[in-house]
Amino acid sequence: MERGILSPSDLQKPVNKILYAFMVLCIAVMAFTMLYPIAMTMFNGLKSNPEINTFPPKFFPTKWHWENFSKGWDYIPLLVYLKNTMFIFLGNLVMTIMVLGLASFSISRIRVPYSRAVYFFILLTLFIPATSYMIPNFVNLKELGLLNSYWAFWLPAGANAYFFLLMKNFFDGIHPEIFEAARIDGASELTSYLRIAIPLSIPIFATLSIFIFSTAWNDWFWPSLVMQTEDKYTLATAIYKYVINARNLDSSIKFSILFMVMVPPIFVFLAFQKFIVRSVSLTAVKG
């Protein structure tokens, strides 16, 4: 049997047995603590409004109010915000693949003269904390006249040194012979990027897509500054302004909306677990 820190013979001792049981109990409590608020968001969305505020709180609703969800759906135009969010996500993804992907391909595979200099020019930005230039960044976008436009998200998406580094490292790992062969067959560099590098790099693009998706889905503060008219708000910004800060909204409707916003990322997580675990271990190498 595969052993860990503990061996099977350790578990024969009563002291260790008790400690192990205590550890399992702690993990069980942890798992419950993790899942309880998520489950309650769902069940509160199905309760009647007075029932949410009863003390002590009940777990299951006594009566299931499915109509909360249709009320929540009609409370704000969620579809418009969803469309804006997906618009930003897709545009950022295209920019990442085309601008950062091409640049990292060039530095990794073509190795033009002075590519080291370009590499450090890009990488240096990793060490500058993002919050420290947040305000000049906003002023800059305003001076460029990009506020309230999707370009204020799409263009800066091409300036992500971290994603650049991830792609460059991935391209470094592809066998150069493949590209040599393509070159001999007369493929241009652009063709070998589009027809060889991209298909071979699906895993890293999947990981990047998840990163970009979660940023587009979760970011509420920056979009609330950049997007200034209601019809351009992202989902998170709209929820923050109209649901979290709402005064006269029933708690039951509030929770039903929060639940609807929470489901897609959870679904993405469960469907793409493999890539997410990879992306998590990549964050450790960040920098």
Partner: peptide, 10 residues
């Protein structure tokens, strides 16, 4: 994976 705004409400 819970979005920030949901976290605050929760």
């Amino acid at each position: 994976v819970v979005p920030g705004v949901v976290l605050y409400g929760m």
